[in-house]
Structures are given as C-alpha cells and as structure tokens.
Nucleic acid binder design. Structure first.
Lengths: 223, 223
DNA sequence: ATACTGTCTAAGCAGTGCTTAGATTGCTTG
DNA sequence: CAAGCAATCTAAGCACTGCTTAGACAGTAT
C-alpha cells in the first residue's frame, strides 16, 4: 500500500525539481548533475512529512521521485536520520524567526505572550513538515547538540521574557513555566491533529482557547 | 546498530514465556505449540516499547526472541499495526481502571481532579510501553473504532466530572476543557521524557506542578 | 592536457513487513 | 478409537528498506 502510493507519486516525473526558483546567479555554486540535491531532498522530505503518510517516509523513495539513484542522497546526508535532524534544526530556526517577529509586535508583556502563543500555533499549522520533523522520535533519539541549541533559542526567548517580567522567580521556576506553556501547546497540536482523542476545535476557537488558558495561567500567579 | 542491540537481547532464550500466569481453567483455549503466543507477543512488544529503542520495534525480532518463525505472529495479528493497536486499546482500558480507582478515592471535585491528574502521570510513567503504543503515529493513523471508544471511556469520565461540577458549561465547553487538560499532561510527558527540550523536573516537582496548574486553570474559570 | 575533487550510478548486503504452501499438532466427532 | 478438522506453526520467497562499496563521470584547477 505504502509502496503503491509512493509509486503513484513517482509516476509524475515532470516535477522532480520542486524549486528551481529565483534563477540562481549565473551558475558555478550548485549546479552539477542534479542541481542542488540537498535542498530538493529537504523539500521533498518536507512534502511527505506534512502529509498523512509522514510516518512511512522512505529515503529511497525521496531519491526516486527526484530522479536520482538511491545511493545519491548519501553523498549529502550521512543517513536518513541526519536529513531529518537537519530539517528539525531548520524548523527550530524558522520558529525562532517567527518568535522574534511576534515579540516585536508589541511591548506589553501580556500582548507578547499572546503573540508568541499565536506564532507557535501558526507555525505548527503552517509548517507541518518542519513541525513533524522537530518532534520525530528518531530525531529526539539522535540528541544532536546543534538541534538542542537551535531549540534553546526559542526556549530561552520565552523563559527570559517570563523571567524579566517576574524577577521574583528563580531561573528554574521560569524554566518550569516555559516548559509548561510549551507542553500545553504541543499537546494541543498533537492531540487535536490526530489520534483517538482528536476533537478538533476550529482554528480560531483553538487560538482563543490557548491564549486564554496561558493568560489565565500566567496571570494569577502566586509562586 | 539497532540489529545488534536487538540480537543482544535475543541472547537470553531462557525467558520466552514471560507470563504463563493464572493457570487458566482446565485447558482448551490457548496452549498449543508455543503457549499463548498472542499474549507473549504483546508482552515482548511492551518491553521494547518501554525502552529507548521503541521507535525501531520489529515484528520479526519479536518472533525471533520468542523462538518462533517470523511468520507465526501473523496467525494472531493481521499485521504489525494490529498488534500495536491492540496494545493501545489495552492501555486505554488500563488507564480507565486507574481513573476509576482514582475517582473513588475522594468525593470533593478538586480532590478528584487532583487524583485523576496524578493517576494519569503515574500511568504514563509506570506503563511506558502502553503509553507509547497509545500515541504511536501508525496507531493513530489506523483510526480503529475500538481504539476510539476505549479512549473515550477515560475522556468521557473526565468530561462528565467537569460537566457535573459546572452545569453552566455546554457539553462542548466541557469537552474543550478536557482536551486542554489532557493536552497539557500529554505534552508534559512527551516533552519531559525526550526531545531537545527535555528539562526533566524531578517526579514530585512535576506532579505538584501539574496539579497546581490544572487546579489553578480550572479554578479561576469565568466562562 | 592532467590531476583532482565533487557528484552520481550500478550492484549488492542485511534487514524489514507480509504472503503462500505445506507440515504438525491437538481437539472433536462418527 | 480412528478419521477428520481446525488451529498453529514452519519454510521459502517477494518486494521493500537503509546503507555500503566500487567505479564512472563531470567540472575545476594546475
């Protein structure tokens, strides 16, 4: 079944170069045989990861639908997991960009938290491929330090925001609160997206609900 | 690597029949060649699922370490996913049992919520194999109706508890609150267990934190 | 032109999920 | 109690996967 589905997709050989894009300057850099295989591999992987067949993504299949041999990808990524980790790192960086932009949109603490919350939900829904990569079990198991530091960018941003607004908290307490917010949002995304519990609230409802929950939770805050 | 690790574990052939258990009435039912293959398969799968190598569980490997052919399991489970779904269903039922017991421990609403929260966290940590099965992507993708109804047992229990205590809420709102609590707890488990964000609070801290968060969130509750 | 590096191919290994055909076992029924 | 039956398992094999090795090429640099 999975194979059939994959084969089907492969049968459109007209779209191997997903993004030739932006007519690269002259040539030189990456334009050997294929034309930037690493990038197109990533894009193809993202496409699969954002679909419902994400959990059976195959390295060979990616190669096939790009029209190269199944061995070609290994010249750019040590193994399958390395590709996924790379995507996860990209994802965390993109999320951080969104966070930075969201944080700039306002100066009030509460508004910033709100913006960040919405930015997170927006990212998770818009960049489903990246988001999936970021929380893939094999990616977590790889425990790459680069991945960790990419993730920490966003984590620290939120923690520092909380810490700044609540100087009475210890660093550890601010971290706890950050974890809790992140857990809440992640759980919400995961459970509403799939699984036997998926009661999917409409998007706006979900937004409002998340914002209010976090607001309320951070608001009445004795210790 | 994965293969080596698996092989290693296989090298203890002394423990294939993990649980002959409870000396079943007379005989008849299941005791042919192996001695209840379905049950031992489940147990072996649970063992793998609760370990760190969970994400590369292999049907063949399970068969091997039970000393049967790789085709034998297919006489009891249609395919790999069916086994996992079965485990997930068992898991949801066990969770429900824990919930029932926890709910009986007290009569006050707040105490019950507290007990249920602790029961959930306790289950997730104690029955890691079941918990992993319950949230495996391929299990979700299977979207079995039995799985759904097993999951709904626990879901409804919480929703009804909330609805009973807050008759002013619509059924939909009570569901929302249930999803939010579940999301929060699930996210907490997932993120603290692995992944680049895993700042693992000590268990007691985590308990206290979860209880307080949920309490506070359900407590100050305008609409 | 020559050598070199980077990119890809061809072929193959070991592992996986799953299927088919047949052997073996234990229960059941004439 | 034998014969038949159904459940259980084995042996062999297909199509797929991740990954490795050896070598063919293309573009760059000397």
């Amino acid at each position: 079944m999975s194979a059939q589905a994959a084969k089907k997709r492969t049968s459109t050989p007209t779209k191997p170069t997903v993004a030739k894009s932006t007519a690269p300057r002259t040539r030189s850099a990456p334009a050997y045989h294929h034309g930037d295989l690493p990038k197109t591999l990533k894009l193809a992987a993202l496409e699969v990861l954002s679909g419902p067949e994400a959990h059976l993504l195959s390295f060979r299949d990616l190669a096939r639908r790009l029209g190269v041999t199944t061995a070609a990808p290994y010249h750019h990524f040590k193994d399958r997991t390395t590709l996924l980790v790379a995507l996860a790192i990209d994802g965390y960086k993109l999320l951080y960009d969104d966070f930075l932009q969201a944080a700039q949109e306002s100066e009030q603490y509460a508004d910033r938290i709100r913006s960040l919350t919405l930015a997170y939900l927006g990212f998770a829904r818009r960049e489903r491929g990246y988001y999936a990569a970021m929380f893939l079990p094999e990616v977590s198991a790889a425990s790459s330090p680069e991945l960790k530091s990419a993730a920490n960018l966003s984590f620290d941003l939120i923690r520092d925001l909380i810490a700044e607004h609540r100087p009475d908290l210890t660093r550890e307490q601010a971290s706890e609160r950050t974890v809790s917010i992140w857990s809440f949002l992640h759980g919400m995304i995961v459970l509403s997206a799939a699984g036997p519990l998926s009661r999917r609230l409409p998007r706006k409802e979900q937004d409002r609900f998340a914002v209010e929950s976090i607001e309320r939770w951070l608001g009445s805050d004795p210790a």
